[in-house]
Design a protein around this nucleic acid. Structure first.
Lengths: 226, 226
DNA sequence: CACATTGCGAGAGCAGTGCTCTTGTTTTAC
DNA sequence: GTAAAACAAGAGCACTGCTCTCGCAATGTG
């Protein structure tokens, strides 16, 4: 029948999926291992056969969330005409925004304040890098397409050096101005989403979607994608 | 001697100050009312005479943090030549950045993911609005000074309507382009700080200060403050 | 096939949490 | 001077993450 190994991965999956459901309902901080165990129909100590600690379960959920967002972003990018750089940028940004609004607790888990004393292990980095990877691939495409970004001040040597890792992560060598503008766009998008989801726009902006669209359009213009 | 009322405010202050110390050390999620009580030298149930619940203590700490940041921002603004709009903008942004790096747990409490089920009561809004207020006063000053912001796309009617509350919060009527650019700058600054503090720049940027300075300088240029 | 090993779920238990209630004492107000 | 209010302490409840031991069942080996 079902071998022990099959049962194990099946049970691991069940526990993680239940945790995912609870995460979406109560949020990261209130996620209880015992409540998950009850929901699965098993005693709490049995969960520790599959996840050594609560943090390990959280890590699995973080990776899952990163991958979900990565899937959404990559799918949105793939669904757009590759030559339509502005369209791809808009699709990418709106994919982030839409996913975050659909999965606010997952977004908070990943882009909100890290849980106390929790240091994301290396297993998360590949999944975490997918959305930034999509950003940087688009930046590279705009470089080869010769898009003209809005003027920026020249970078000092220290500033250039500070951005060396991200520059090295892009296949095509990016100009200073383009690199800076793309990083600023990255800050702006996630700043908007975080401020919105964490309640800091509540008193100032009525229609989040309308404002987000306007910001994204403006970023696309600043990046010379039109 | 010390009247009962005096003792009460004194004890309230002691508890909040101890909570503030613990917050800085262990972060918001690990903040334990019992540990605070032990530190104060009192039994845990006694704390409930002063703060009806853990959330109420957290709210007090949120207000305190907002006010600390507000103090820092307003002080930085006041210490700069009022006519030097670019200098004031830089001072303001760096005050946010510096305070956040000095008080990461407090920043996470205020700008990170909200604690589960917690809705900031109205007592926080005045303190919370101080930093955005400083931003908007500077925006108004740049409007009256006639600063030329980088070109933006025209706003649709829906987008204009979405920003009505923030527009109403500014003494001077702001032009569409200026309002949008200032909001984007707000997103960018807090996006940068959040991404940095929550560990998302770890693999891409070596020198956070150098990068932040460059971003702020560029924002000042985009806002036409030079 | 028989046996030893290993994996597994259940249960008890520990130390900790937020919070409530009662009890005796001290300070205030009338 | 006495009634009322405020207070700190303690016990206790329900909950948490986590550890350990106990039997039972599946597995691999002689």
């Amino acid at each position: 029948m079902t071998s022990r190994a099959e049962n194990r991965i099946e049970q691991t999956r069940t526990i993680q999926a239940t945790g995912r459901r609870h995460l979406a309902e109560v949020g990261p901080a209130a996620l209880s291992l015992r409540a998950i165990a009850r929901d699965v129909g098993v005693v709490s100590s049995a969960v520790y056969r599959y996840f050594p600690s609560r943090d390990d379960l959280l890590t699995a959920l973080i990776v899952e969330s990163y991958d979900e967002l990565g899937d959404a972003v990559e799918a949105a990018d793939a669904a757009t005409d590759p030559a339509d750089l502005a369209g791809r940028f808009r699709a990418l940004c709106h994919a982030i925004h839409d996913w975050a609004r659909t999965n606010p607790h997952e977004y908070a888990l990943v882009y909100g304040s890290p849980v106390p004393g929790y240091a994301a292990p290396d297993t998360t980095v590949t999944s975490a890098g997918r959305v930034t990877g999509a950003f940087l691939r688009l930046a590279a495409a705009s470089e080869t397409a010769g898009a003209t970004v809005a003027a920026t001040r020249p970078l000092t040597e220290a500033e250039r050096a500070a951005l060396e890792p991200v520059r090295a992560a892009v296949a095509v060598p990016l100009s200073d101005v383009r690199l800076l503008r793309w990083l600023m766009a990255w800050h702006t998008v996630f700043g908007h989403v975080s401020l919105e989801l964490f309640g800091h726009m509540h008193r100032g902006v009525l229609d989040y979607d309308a404002h987000f669209s306007q910001v994204v359009d403006q970023l696309a213009a600043d990046l010379g994608l039109d």
